Measured scan of single mutants.
Amino acid sequence: VTLFVALYDYEAITEDDLSFHKGEKFQILNSSEGDWWEARSLTTGETGYIPSNYVAPVD
Rank of each mutant, 00 (worst) to 15 (best):
E24S: 04
N30P: 04
K25Q: 11
I28Y: 03
A12H: 06
E24A: 06
W36R: 15
S32F: 10
L3I: 15
Q27R: 09
D35K: 10
S52M: 10
G34Q: 13
D35C: 13
V1T: 13
L42I: 09
L42K: 04
S52P: 07
Y54W: 07
L18R: 02
Y54G: 05
T14N: 15
Y8V: 06
D16E: 11
K25H: 12
P51E: 02
D59Y: 13
E24F: 04
E46L: 14
S32N: 11
Y54D: 01
N53G: 10
P57I: 09
P57E: 08
Y10W: 11
P51C: 08
E38S: 09
T47N: 05
G23C: 06
A6I: 01
Y10M: 04
K25E: 08
N30K: 09
S31G: 09
E24K: 01
H21G: 07
D9K: 04
S19T: 09
K25A: 07
T47A: 07
E11A: 10
G34Y: 10
T14F: 15
D35T: 13
D17C: 14
T2A: 11
L29E: 05
L18Y: 04
V5P: 00
L3Y: 13
T47Q: 10
Y54Q: 05
T44V: 02
V58A: 10
F4V: 11
E11I: 14
W36E: 03
E15H: 11
Y8A: 09
Y49E: 03
F4A: 09
H21R: 14
W36A: 06
L7D: 01
S41T: 04
P57F: 06
P57W: 06
Y49A: 05
S31A: 13
V58L: 13
D35W: 12
P51H: 09
T14H: 15
S19D: 04
N30T: 08
F26C: 01
E33I: 11
P51F: 07
E24D: 15
N53C: 13
D17W: 15
G23W: 05
R40V: 10
R40L: 13
G45E: 05
S31E: 09
D59V: 13
A12G: 12
G23V: 01
E46A: 14
Q27M: 14
K25V: 15
V1N: 12
V5L: 06
I13A: 12
D17F: 15
N53T: 12
L42F: 07
I50W: 01
V5G: 03
W37K: 03
I50V: 09
Y10V: 02
A39V: 12
A6E: 00
Q27E: 14
N53Q: 11
I13R: 14
V1S: 13
S32G: 11
T14D: 12
S31K: 12
D16W: 15
S19Y: 03
S52I: 06
P51D: 05
F4D: 00
Y54E: 01
R40D: 01
Y8F: 11
D59W: 13
K25S: 06
Y54T: 04
K22N: 04
V58K: 04
G23D: 06
P51A: 04
I28H: 01
T43R: 14
D9H: 06
P51G: 04
T47R: 10
E38H: 15
F20E: 00
D35P: 11
Y10N: 03
F4Q: 03
S31N: 12
Y10A: 02
E24P: 00
L7Q: 04
P51T: 02
S19L: 02
L7M: 08
V5T: 05
S32H: 11
D16H: 15
F26T: 00
A39T: 02
D59Q: 13
A12I: 01
P57M: 09
P57A: 09
A6D: 00
D17G: 15
L29H: 05
E33W: 12
D17H: 15
L42Y: 07
V5N: 02
T44A: 03
T2R: 08
D16Y: 15
L42T: 07
G34H: 13
L18W: 04
K22V: 10
F20V: 04
I28T: 02
A56E: 10
L29I: 11
Y8C: 11
G45M: 08
W36H: 08
D35I: 12
L3V: 14
